[in-house]
Design a protein around this nucleic acid. Structure first.
Lengths: 172, 172
DNA sequence: GGAGACTGGTTACATCTGAAACTTTCTCTG
DNA sequence: CAGAGAAAGTTTCAGATGTAACCAGTCTCC
């Protein structure tokens, strides 16, 4: 299906060189941001309400639930969060005794984080709920399409990161 | 490295009812959030650097560039932003004389916002650049797929909004 | 083996953001 | 047409976020 049925007769197939108009509503970065916001909002609220977890805290638990112990450093990589963010999230979880912190034999500056028994118990509740939310959101989209969506999101992320990094956006 | 060998094997095709494990990396809300962040980052930086515009300001200009005048109220709807956010963005643009503010004959509480000549001129630079960024990000994805991606994002957004709203997430 | 560069983690600060309270105007109803 | 209730816009305040400075332990290379 062509993206612009016929209403916009003049633009339906933008001639090479001619810019199509900027319509915020059809602008992908905008759509992406808005969709991500809505989804984040939904899930964030659920986790605050039910478990008192912020999003960064939730992410730490999700990662540590499947692989632990890890250093804050490693957690940054896995969650794509700033080290300050990881730090703060970890502090909160440590205070609630959901996380344990052990010295890192290999490097004195660092330490190892892992879930406590209480943490594990919470994880056991948190994880299925997360999956339910995902399932609800994706209900009615075919598995193959979900996979593709995931691919594209990854791809967009990497392209954007590369451009940010290199500082070389589209020509000025 | 793989923390849980056996689970992985068992999961490849989740039997109905059995939850698959939660892997943050494959978790769609996470992917969405991370991708949106990367893209936002990229574009936000570009606009701050080149035009001194924040994202909310940029959105106002984008909307007003194609349809104006509009009330703050209407802008909230069009940009899916909080009224406080719209307010602040507008204030900034008004100070820079990119926006004009006229009384709203129909409703004394409100007013009409539109781009000034300077604003229009900036818009004329801003819009093509935005489209270039979009094109760069999407380079190599077929038009049909781009359209689909847009559809899904809309759909996710609406589903999420509906759930947030109704407060009825997946069963507790 | 020690000086300098570096890296992991932490803290401090300035900014941004959103919820709630407030003011003015409008609308509806008796 | 007066008063109650709602809505638009604004201000205020508390919490979250990210950047930059900071400290301590580690690496490297002469």
């Amino acid at each position: 299906m062509s993206s612009r049925p016929s209403t916009v007769v003049l633009m339906s197939a933008p001639p090479p060189g001619a810019q199509r108009a900027l319509r915020l509503d059809d602008y992908l970065p905008y759509r992406l941001s808005v969709a991500a916001n809505a989804v984040s909002q939904l899930i964030a609220r659920a986790y605050v309400d039910r478990f008192g977890l912020t999003v960064p805290q939730w992410r730490l638990m999700a990662v540590l639930g499947e692989d632990s112990p890890l250093t804050p450093q490693a957690l940054c990589g896995r969650t794509i969060m700033d080290k300050v963010t990881v730090m703060r999230a970890a502090r909160g979880l440590l205070q609630r005794r959901l996380l344990r912190r052990q010295p890192n034999a290999a490097d004195g500056r660092s330490h190892q984080l892992s879930l406590t028994a209480t943490g594990e118990r919470m994880y056991a509740e948190v994880a299925p709920l997360a999956l339910k939310y995902e399932a609800t959101l994706l209900a009615g989209i075919e598995a193959a399409d979900v996979a593709r969506l995931g691919q594209w999101l990854r791809r967009l992320q990497h392209t954007a990161a590369a451009l940010t990094e290199g500082g070389t956006g589209p020509a000025r």
